[in-house]
Design a protein around this nucleic acid. Structure first.
Lengths: 224, 224
DNA sequence: CACAAATGCTACTCTAGAGTATAAACAAAG
DNA sequence: CTTTGTTTATACTCTAGAGTAGCATTTGTG
């Protein structure tokens, strides 16, 4: 909202067309902000009570608005669920791709991948958990798109394992199958981690790194 | 039902009190059978559509009975969910305890544990998956009892890891934390395995054994 | 066959929540 | 200060499903 206010000020000293364009842009930003806030609160309730058990009235109340307000920003409840699931997997996938863009050996890359993805999953636990639990509540075509993202994630992870296998850094008989175990281990964090619980986020991330390293390490000894 | 019919035949040649007792026993068996069938079908729908989205009318239809029939065997929908969740975790716990009762080194025991628990999870995927997904829908006191079972599972697994750590078979810095990763890996099977999918149950079980062995193996080399 | 007891079904009630038609409030422009 | 368009709320509709009261049907018994 700060940026948006600034944009208006700049527009004031400009000619009318530009002012109009700036005003339109501001409006879009506000709309995007409202959509994001609705999604945040909805994911909170979906995480706590589940998708079906959550009423949009309760989400609206939390935002100090009413149900029709939500319906003016989302077509229906299912669209909210789709956006939440999409966010959950897309964030993980983006984290993976960014980590993969860091130069290094397969071992180094894998460590960065696990660290970053684990962090993202913990930070966005609500979205990831809802995605894992509520896939069955998605419309078939939405479920399909989500599965494609998931598949991309597993495929890119498998490619990294294959790379490490070729260099001899990893001992993995079936990269694509091992990738599923690794991505499962990462997903498990969302279902199990509890903020303020027995173990800190950092401990969990470090554990995840250790576990994955062991899962791929050659029988002969440590690596990385 | 075969056993039950036999019981009646035997009772027929006996005196009346025994006959009555046998008849009562038979009735109990039939009641237990009906309850089990209801649970089976309910778990099927809960697995496919989720707890909230499943109607007891649909479960009744599948059994060719009516909703009040179900209500004469279960107090309400929540009791059904509790029994399903309870079954899911109890089966895993029993499999763990039976595997632990087999004599052998920690490595041998761990292998048996993973093999048996993984098999049980695949065979009872519906129950385990519903348990993992629908914990939030349980009444607080039910959720509590389920969590206690889960905790027992993790604790017994941790004890095995600790045993192997002492003998030097395993390299685990924190047995109780590692136990959670192992039990998470096993749970993940329920969420991910798909019958008739890309990989057979046996392949998945063997993979699970390999992964867990690697997770605990000393950095210096293989074991078991 | 008649009567009793159990078992199951028909036909409801009642609540709750998704989604909407329409009116009010507000903002921006002239 | 009015007019016009946009944003949000009020006040519904309508469906669906959990849970139940009471009737019917079957089963077993003297």
């Amino acid at each position: 909202m700060q940026t948006a206010a600034l944009a208006t000020d700049i527009a004031d000293i400009m000619d009318k067309p530009k002012k109009k364009r700036a005003a339109a842009q501001l409006k879009d930003e506000i709309t995007a902000y409202k959509r994001r806030r609705i999604l945040e609160e909805a994911s909170h309730f979906f995480f706590l009570n589940g998708y079906e058990a959550t009423t949009l009235d309760s989400v609206a109340e939390q935002l100090n608005v009413t149900k029709p307000f939500i319906y003016s920003y989302y077509k229906n409840k299912g669209e909210l669920l789709y956006e939440i699931c999409q966010t959950g997997i897309q964030l993980s996938l983006t984290a993976l791709e960014e980590a993969l863009s860091v130069e290094g050996t397969a071992s180094e890359q894998l460590k960065i991948v696990v660290e970053r993805v684990a962090r993202i999953i913990i930070e966005n636990q609500r979205y990831v958990t809802v995605y894992l639990r509520e896939e069955k509540s998605l419309l078939p075509e939405d479920a399909r798109r989500i599965r494609d993202l998931r598949h991309t994630f597993d495929t890119k992870l498998a490619a990294l394992l294959e790379k490490g296998r070729k260099t001899g850094e990893f001992d993995v008989a079936h990269p694509s199958r091992t990738a599923i175990w690794v991505s499962g281990l990462l997903s498990w964090i969302a279902l199990w981690y509890h903020e303020g619980g027995r173990w800190s986020a950092t401990e969990v991330v470090m554990d995840a790194i250790t576990m994955v390293q062991k899962m791929v390490q050659p029988a002969g000894g440590a690596n990385g």
